[in-house]
């Protein structure tokens, strides 16, 4: 059995439907050795998957679904972080 390590893929969607369009993405690859470049800011123009559902079909497992936002009177139109953040994982042999 090869040694496995975790890859974490974070997908942000346009709205909470898991088939909604991916608007942001980040990959953290635990199978890469220290010192090898991880995904960098601005290094890709196109999301790896068009949605969370598409990533699931390709073998990624969803670890976390975002809690729905809570809206407060007086702050109804405030925005901050990207709210619809899905964390996915897969386990792959060590590489690099």
């Amino acid at each position: 059995m090869p040694e496995l390590r975790q890859q974490i893929l974070i997908l942000h969607l346009a709205h909470p439907d898991l088939d909604a369009a991916t608007i942001a993405w980040a990959l953290y690859d635990g199978a890469k050795p220290e010192g090898e470049l991880q995904m960098q800011t601005g290094d890709e123009d196109t999301p790896p998957y068009k949605s969370v559902l598409a990533a699931m079909r390709d073998g990624w497992f969803v670890m976390q679904l975002p809690t729905m936002p809570t809206f407060h009177r007086g702050e109804e139109h405030e925005t901050g972080h990207l709210p619809y953040e899905y964390v996915l994982e897969r386990r792959v042999p060590i590489h690099g």
Binding site: I23, A24, L27, Q40, D43
Partner: peptide, 20 residues
């Protein structure tokens, strides 16, 4: 216009229509 705190967005890597 988004309320974020300095490095609190550091988990993000690529965002559609980011611009150099």
């Amino acid at each position: 216009l988004r309320l974020v705190s300095n490095l609190s967005i550091a988990r993000y890597k690529n965002i559609v229509v980011q611009k150099q």
